[in-house]
Design a binder for these strands. Structure first.
Lengths: 342, 342
DNA sequence: TTGAAAGCGCTAACAG
DNA sequence: CTGTTAGCGCTTTCAA
């Protein structure tokens, strides 16, 4: 005796047709019950619900969305590296907003690879996500223009797009760095070493521009403090610090363009048992533990993700508005261990 | 003059039918070109491709999967809190594996809420994800049994499920803690204060069990070192440390059940300018900066996510195998600043 | 209030 | 090699 007559095959997922057969109603009535349409006679609805739980029915949302043309309740988030706390904080904040809108988040890392970024965007569009939040690699995003025009809005975080118009949420890199350098200048420093990452990066260029503003308004020769670029993450920041200190007329203060550079600098200073006026862009959770006092430019990382997601949902509900640009304010904080200060 | 005659409406996304019309071929030929089926005459394929890029066609994968019954190339990851580096590291590792399988990851946080966890599982199943990776809240997961039976496999990370059978990847909490406590005992400590989180948590119970093993085999009275539970994250770990130190016959060493507890303890010791033999479960990126030496139980967090994802994809390709359980090994590391050691 | 028919965008199965 | 027909699981439309 098989159950072919009155039930679905063992492995198959039950469909509304199966439910309808068991409940003795039409497919459409099952659909109405599943969608909580109120105009269904109570006893029928009850029979349908019984059949649903008997079969363990679960609506196939993929199919439902296809016919109705409804949104997929999914947004794509493309960041550079989920393992980096900066980006995972952004992801968490965006996810919290998405949850409020009953939307799921597909998160993917481009790993600073423009080709991968493009692939991801296209893949996500083929999945018909409702919108995209992107931390761009800084290359060309013109391929997004048609997508945006077709109603898949995008919001850019941390850096603006190039080659297409879209909403953006960025840090106030320029003002933050300007205020930081101003403070060093006010303390009397006239020789500030500046260590930055690659200047292909929008944020790094802005930070350097802010530093120059402060130096110029103080009448200090910016050329003398030319940034020493460093190649890659690990030790090279420390090497740059070493080179600066070993040169004639070494700087009395150091500005580090981001927190990884700061860590390299701190290590190098600890190795040399040297103290210097330290300043950096980026606050981070364990900055208070640093064995060296440092003044950092802080900001609300969660706000980046939160505002981007909020802008996206606003745009989903009001398409066609002009792209807007939100700038997250920055502030100065003093960090480093008390132990180390004594 | 409108373009209604030969093109889709302005806002609408072009479908294969539109492409077919423009290219002067049948829908099926377009489908073949889109799927890179080789048996299409070169000139036709070229015309189709031209029409595709003219219209900006993008295949609707949702529809494609519906008919073909193919997998959605999407897996769901349910973690406790994406903002927590432990979980975001797991997510990043799982994402890296998913990428190798051309699969996207929907990541969602349950926030330690069992009801939310259940909602998320059901939502993801309705979206027909190919599989689930779950860091469970420790409550009942029996609702997953039918899903698993129906071919949506699940892998549990960090804690095993209750109420259903599934693959798991967990840390060797017990051995790690046992080895750590053994070391303290070998150093001569006979009074070890133990500060743990809620014992509803599987990992914390296991760690405590490991500690007890070490104490018992050394013939040390475990009761005397009863764990002081602490209520919530912020200061209460520090308060527990304070209470222990102010009691008569205070401990000479401290075991902290996780890294948040360790931070609270370190702060309290710094406040009191007291030094104690410190030990804890969980290594973390900035542990080397701690202003107090500490021996921690380390492990490869990425391995948790990586192995879980690999188990999931293995199961997707070989359904029906018995659930297996993978245990990640642990090791001891000495941390804390050199500065603080001098 | 209920149901039959059509169709979302695509692929499977089969025919030409 | 190409096209036609059917149909995935659901919703929409419209008639009963």
């Amino acid at each position: 005796m098989t159950d072919q007559a009155d039930g679905p095959a063992p492995g198959r997922r039950p469909t509304m047709i199966d439910v309808a057969r068991v409940a003795g109603v039409s497919l459409k009535t099952v659909s109405r019950v599943a969608n909580e349409v109120p105009t269904v006679r109570a006893d029928l609805a009850e029979r349908v619900r019984a059949a649903m739980s008997e079969l363990g029915f679960q609506r196939n949302n993929v199919a439902a969305n296809l016919r109705s043309g409804r949104a997929t309740a999914t947004i794509g988030l493309i960041i550079l590296d989920l393992a980096n706390p900066f980006y995972s904080t952004i992801a968490a904040a965006a996810a919290a907003v998405a949850e409020r809108f009953d939307t799921q988040l597909i998160t993917a890392s481009s790993g600073w690879d423009p080709a991968r970024e493009r692939e991801l965007v296209l893949d996500l569009c083929e999945r018909r996500v409702d919108g995209l939040i992107i931390v761009p690699t800084g290359e060309d995003q013109s391929y997004l223009s048609t997508e945006i025009g077709r109603g898949t809005p995008a919001v850019f975080i941390d850096s603006p797009p190039s080659g297409c118009r879209a909403d953006t949420v960025v840090l106030d890199n320029r003002t933050g760095t300007r205020d930081l350098i101003r403070r060093l200048l006010a303390e009397g420093h006239r020789h500030i070493g500046m260590i930055t990452d690659t200047l292909n990066d929008f944020t790094m260029r802005e930070r350097l521009a802010g530093a120059r503003e402060a130096l110029e308004e103080a009448g200090v020769d910016a050329g003398r403090h030319a940034a020493r670029l460093y190649s890659d993450h690990p030790r090279s920041a420390g090497d740059s610090v070493g080179a600066m200190l070993d040169a004639p007329d070494p700087p009395t203060a150091l500005f580090c363009g981001n927190n990884r550079i700061l860590l390299g600098a701190v290590e190098e200073l600890a190795r040399r048992r040297t103290r210097l006026r330290l300043a950096a862009f980026d606050d981070f959770e364990f900055a208070p533990l640093l064995p060296h006092p440092v003044t950092v430019v802080g900001y609300d990382t969660r706000a980046l993700g939160r505002l981007a997601a909020e802008m996206l949902f606003r745009r989903l509900n009001a398409p066609g508005a002009e792209p807007s640009n939100y700038v997250i304010p920055t502030y100065l904080v003093d960090r480093g261990t008390e132990l180390a200060r004594e």
